[in-house]
Nucleic acid binder design. Structure first.
Lengths: 133, 133
DNA sequence: CTTGACATACGAAGGCATTCGTAGTATCAT
DNA sequence: ATGATACTACGAATGCCTTCGTATGTCAAG
């Protein structure tokens, strides 16, 4: 249920993955349209590298190959958070969360939503978070 | 009150900064004692580079120079979290926190502490978090 | 068939992070 | 004084990330 082997995406790779997660399988040109300040062959090369790494797959049936994310957004995001958790906070989720919610840009609405998350985590673990606005 | 100019620390740099934050001003050898799998000159070189970047300062009055963090733990951690927030979550603190607390290793005690943090952020902003166990 | 548009493949360059060897220098005990 | 010890400075190698230029291939229209 996770993505065992593929490495953590780098910066540029994550930008591309986020496009694929949001837009679904896409050609190089389609990905390019959602990335700022990048040349065509740059995105192409990145996707080729990402394919080697197992981060994306591609469908070659059309002339313009169609790339799709080979790793799930949720598990990848989780690993990125865990990585930072280890590197900067010694594994203390509380200290990381403290910084995440300390920002000026966190609305009371968000705070409320996070509170709901805490409820669902602490009590039971039936299914995932309430929703995803 | 923040650390304007110094860049975000890299991986190895963060490891060293965390030692300095925890142990206070230290010599190369003292830092080395808290780092796993690193040679003496490696740590030395890192500290020299970090000095060039403005991440640490050093006191040369003793033969063994004493290095001290030049950036605050809190603001650096905040910037690291904000960086991940931007790169992976489009700025949504809720989505980041969801992953941070979803871990199996987050105790109910931690959950409670995070809930307290939410209270202090949402309602008043008199002074900082309750404590730091 | 030729041409133009568009696609992929590949190599290479530049930059940064990380590591470590070597050389030079100061300190101290004998 | 001298040799051992500990420290700093510096250069260089390695590897990864990112970018882009160039070569090559394919397809459709004239």
């Amino acid at each position: 249920m996770s993505d065992p082997d593929a490495p953590l995406p780098t910066d540029a790779e994550l930008s591309i993955l986020r496009v694929l997660w949001r837009e679904g399988p896409s050609t190089v040109r389609e990905v390019l349209a959602h990335i700022d300040d990048a040349g065509y062959t740059t995105v192409l090369k990145q996707l080729q590298i990402m394919r080697d790494k197992g981060l994306v797959t591609r469908d070659e049936s059309s002339r313009a190959h169609v790339y799709a994310a080979a790793v799930q957004a949720a598990s990848t995001e989780k690993r990125l958070v865990d990585d930072l958790l280890d590197r900067a906070f010694g594994g203390s989720a509380r200290r990381l969360v403290a910084h995440a919610i300390a920002g000026d840009s966190v609305s009371d609405e968000e705070i409320g939503a996070i509170r709901d998350l805490l409820d669902s985590v602490q009590s039971d673990d039936s299914d995932d978070g309430p929703d995803d606005s």
